[in-house]
Simulated assay, not measured.
Amino acid sequence: MSARVHITPLHRITVTETAAWHRVVAASTALDLPGVPAPSAGHVHAQLTKPALGSQRLTWLATAEDGTGVGVAALRLFTQPGQDHLAELELHVHPEHRRRGTGSQLLSAVVAACRTEDRRSLVVAAGADGPGEAFAERWGFEAVLTLDHLVMALDKDEDLARIRQMADAEHPGYRLTGWSGVVPDELAGPFAAAKNAMNDMPMGDVDYGRVDWDADRVREMGRVVTGRGDTLLTLAAVHADGTMAGYTEIVLPGGAPQRAQQYDTAVAPAHRGHGLGLWLKAAMAERLRAEHPGVTEVETDNAEDNVHMLAVNRSLGYRSYRRTREFQLDLATP
């Protein structure tokens, strides 16, 4: 059954629009992703109003005849060379207003914008085997990547003893260094070189392109995360010759979060096979316990075919609790 809704592009996000957006996302998340903490109103406002790294954002709000917000869509348009063919979608419809055509109207506006912006690929994530997956398939999206989401508890004694042992393991020729927020200037170049190691990460069939990191871009990444009110923690393994051999990143959402989010972990090809990824992630867990005792768990995700990192995470005590799939729409075909 279709219903009359009004689709409004948002430009200067108001307090009222932020509240409507948060209401829709919180209700959608609670139903579709049980166990996943809904974003706070402050986090939603920051997401909608603060700059994103290497991209710009378009947003739409769907309202019912009485003015109530019933659906939202955010389109991230990547702007850096190597990814300027790509767009990424987040779409939510309030559970009380589904199966009335709201999602389809929002997606029609998104696809039209993608074509105007000359994008060839539109990607979106949805909970595996859920309503979002069925919606994507109806619109002709192709499943291109399955992600396994895992959580590690930081308050279980049987896991902590093992993690501490891994963090204290000897790695001759390497030392750990860490920072919060923006990378220190003297490490920006080596960090950018290590970041480029992520370009060989398994990504299924996603038309993701390539990200080329330099010192300016890694500094900007730190400023973007900090600017939206989150805390970015980084640990790096530095070789005796000064090369940054690997790193791991954790983000603490603004406020007093119990769950931290794992961002990138990577080891440069020349330094693989020495257990650096496991060492870095174990040491980060120890850092979280020491500096942020209110954080009791960490969530990460892995492509199902990234066998090495899945093994690392499971040895740390991560446990699977849900799956998502990445879907891709080919916009090059009329």
Results as ranks from 00 to 15, higher is better:
residue 192 A to N: 03
residue 57 R to F: 01
residue 27 A to E: 00
residue 87 A to I: 07
residue 125 A to I: 00
residue 138 R to H: 14
residue 158 E to Y: 03
residue 196 N to K: 14
residue 181 G to V: 01
residue 230 D to Q: 14
residue 112 A to D: 13
residue 52 A to D: 10
residue 134 A to M: 12
residue 52 A to Q: 13
residue 161 A to K: 07
residue 269 P to M: 11
residue 2 S to P: 06
residue 233 L to Y: 13
residue 249 E to V: 11
residue 34 P to C: 05
residue 175 R to E: 08
residue 82 G to M: 12
residue 91 L to T: 09
residue 46 A to I: 01
residue 2 S to Q: 12
residue 33 L to R: 10
residue 224 V to P: 10
residue 179 W to R: 12
residue 281 K to E: 04
residue 91 L to A: 08
residue 32 D to A: 13
residue 129 D to V: 14
residue 158 E to S: 06
residue 331 L to G: 15
residue 39 P to N: 03
residue 105 Q to E: 05
residue 312 V to F: 05
residue 220 E to Y: 13
residue 124 V to A: 08
residue 193 A to V: 11
residue 268 A to H: 14
residue 158 E to F: 02
residue 183 V to R: 11
residue 306 N to E: 04
residue 53 L to G: 04
residue 170 E to Y: 04
residue 244 M to A: 05
residue 18 T to E: 05
residue 293 P to T: 06
residue 257 P to C: 10
residue 281 K to P: 07
residue 1 M to H: 06
residue 131 P to R: 15
residue 315 S to C: 05
residue 291 E to H: 12
residue 226 T to R: 10
residue 122 L to A: 08
residue 248 T to Y: 05
residue 20 A to Q: 11
residue 168 D to L: 13
residue 6 H to R: 15
residue 121 S to A: 08
residue 243 T to N: 00
residue 314 R to Y: 06
residue 70 V to Y: 09
residue 38 A to V: 08
residue 207 D to H: 01
residue 148 D to N: 11
residue 332 A to C: 10
residue 240 A to N: 04
residue 37 P to M: 03
residue 26 A to E: 04
residue 58 L to P: 00
residue 308 H to L: 11
residue 86 L to D: 01
residue 209 G to Q: 01
residue 295 V to D: 04
residue 9 P to G: 15
residue 233 L to Q: 14
residue 120 R to K: 13
residue 276 L to E: 07
residue 99 R to M: 04
residue 219 R to W: 01
residue 63 T to G: 14
residue 265 T to G: 06
residue 1 M to Q: 09
residue 53 L to F: 13
residue 311 A to G: 13
residue 257 P to Q: 12
residue 99 R to G: 05
residue 326 E to P: 00
residue 183 V to C: 15
residue 38 A to M: 06
residue 254 G to N: 04
residue 188 A to Q: 11
residue 130 G to W: 12
residue 218 V to Q: 03
residue 32 D to C: 10
residue 213 W to Y: 15
residue 256 A to C: 04
residue 3 A to E: 09
residue 317 G to V: 02
residue 54 G to C: 10
residue 57 R to T: 07
residue 91 L to C: 08
residue 215 A to G: 00
residue 122 L to H: 08
residue 61 L to Q: 05
residue 221 M to L: 11
residue 112 A to E: 14
residue 220 E to S: 13
residue 163 I to R: 01
residue 130 G to L: 14
residue 331 L to E: 12
residue 196 N to Y: 13
residue 186 E to N: 10
residue 294 G to M: 10
residue 67 G to R: 09
residue 138 R to P: 03
residue 146 T to Y: 06
residue 151 V to K: 04
residue 9 P to E: 15
residue 74 A to W: 13
residue 302 N to A: 09
residue 138 R to M: 03
residue 250 I to W: 10
residue 17 E to G: 09
residue 236 A to H: 04
residue 60 W to C: 01
residue 153 A to D: 03
residue 52 A to F: 03
residue 305 D to P: 11
residue 203 M to E: 07
residue 300 T to K: 01
residue 197 A to R: 09
residue 157 D to Q: 02
residue 181 G to W: 02
residue 109 A to M: 09
residue 263 Y to S: 08
residue 134 A to I: 09
residue 288 L to K: 12
residue 288 L to A: 13
residue 111 V to P: 01
